[in-house]
Design a protein around this nucleic acid. Structure first.
Lengths: 109, 109
DNA sequence: GCCGGTAGTGCGCATTGCACAGTACTGTGC
DNA sequence: GCACAGTACTGTGCAATGCGCACTACCGGC
């Protein structure tokens, strides 16, 4: 009964979606994902995903000082990231639809 | 643009759902999943999942001879499997709903 | 006999989410 | 001044899992 595996391959899209709203930094992305309902998301997963996406060329990055703590490393979508987001979002929707079809009889019973 | 990661943690549920309709064997489960829309599912993944679920005590297993080829190892749900199916299906639905919320603005734009 | 379809097993890899430890800065309370 | 909680990021290493690939093996048709 562990939901953690459900995130596999989907955390990318979730992070991209959050960044699509507005630029953000790791710690804040974690907070926003948890507020959105992904309560079990691990912080290291998000930081790792951000670094991976950046390394893949999907994100821009800039550091901003903060007077409430250490510096914040902001990330934002570039064209590659936006393309990946729309592509992945479409794939997710199709996939989710397929899964719902498969599971609809389960819910019926 | 690889959809394979989406299956992570979900193939279990998909396989359980297919077996919930009726008992089946590996090769047939692969076919039925592909027909259902999971076209990219690998055969080794399904065989592995079946073995894993069986080892976890969620499935029964019996061998049936076939005159169209080699023997078939049928699998069926037991009470543990049915419980896992309903539990996982519920989790999936909640998760999918959360993801749809996160992505709804993406589709809007 | 060979080949394509059917059916299963085993090996090893790549991806990826996560736990955990460590670093570092800020403000509060003592 | 110092412990402590909250903020913020990094690095290491592990575990789960889907998949490619090779292999075995049985069948029918050419």
């Amino acid at each position: 009964m562990d939901s953690s595996q459900l995130l596999k391959g989907v955390l990318d899209v979730a992070v991209l979606a959050v960044l699509n709203e507005r630029d953000s930094y790791g710690y804040d992305v974690v907070r926003r994902l948890r507020e959105a309902g992904l309560e079990d998301v691990g912080d290291a997963s998000v930081y790792g995903t951000l670094r991976r996406l950046f390394k893949a060329g999907a994100l821009t990055s800039y550091v901003v000082a903060s007077d409430e703590g250490p510096h914040r490393k902001y990330y934002g979508l570039n064209s590659v990231g936006r393309a990946q987001l729309t592509g992945s979002a479409t794939m997710w929707t199709a996939f989710a639809s397929t899964m719902n079809d498969l599971l609809k009889e389960v819910h019926a019973s």
